[in-house]
């Protein structure tokens, strides 16, 4: 390389040294925008339908999915907060306006922002993995069998409540009494 070329790249090195905080903040802002966009798309396309169908899941799987949703929500929230903290400056006061102190503080802020960005990316990836895994569970788990519905029915001068059973002749019975009149379907017996 020529001396002019060397001097050009030395200038770039100096820019990189002096712009470390801006470099990290730009990266954090980019990451924050990506996180928001991906989560927005995912919430629109998959997550909403996953939540709607969750009540159809077997009880055990439903609990796992609920825990997954809670973990993903916390991870994504932390990722968003940390990305925001890395991308933005918090105003502060100082009485030390010496070159050394200002340069050291600049580097410390850049290093702190980089740590926050790394943690944000970690939480973001963890949240995304949980969301994707949970969505696959919701999509590929068979629906729970329908729960038998109790009914209230008058029979033989009394009122019975319970889940009807089938008689040998195919008619419905409640407490071994054939159902002949109208029945009222209830969520549970009083």
């Amino acid at each position: 390389m020529s001396r002019e070329e060397d001097e050009y790249w030395e200038g770039k090195i100096l820019e990189a040294r002096r712009g470390q905080l801006d470099t990290v903040r730009k990266a954090a802002a980019g990451w924050s925008a990506l996180l928001t966009a991906v989560l927005g798309a995912f919430a629109t396309v998959t997550f909403a339908s996953g939540l709607t169908g969750m009540n159809d899941l077997p009880v055990g799987v439903r609990s796992i999915v609920r825990i997954g949703i809670a973990i993903a929500a916390i991870a994504v929230l932390l990722a968003t907060i940390l990305a925001g903290a890395a991308a933005n400056a918090f105003p502060r006061k100082t009485n030390d306006l010496t070159v050394d102190a200002f340069r050291t503080a600049h580097k410390e802020r850049a290093t702190r922002a980089l740590k926050r960005l790394k943690w944000s990316m970690g939480f973001g990836v963890a949240g995304a993995v949980v969301v994707v895994a949970g969505s696959f569970v919701v999509l590929f788990t068979d629906k729970a069998p329908a729960k038998p519905q109790p009914v209230i029915a008058p029979a033989g001068g009394k009122v019975y409540c319970g889940v009807p059973s089938a008689a040998p002749d195919g008619s419905l019975m409640l407490a071994n009494v054939p159902l002949t009149g109208d029945v009222i379907v209830v969520a549970k017996c009083p």
């Binding site: 990189a16 040294r17 470099t23 580097k107 290093t111 980089l114 960005l117």
Partner: peptide
């Protein structure tokens, strides 16, 4: 001379 310049993750 500055060590540990932030240039990558």
């Amino acid at each position: 001379v500055e060590f540990d310049v932030i240039a990558s993750m």
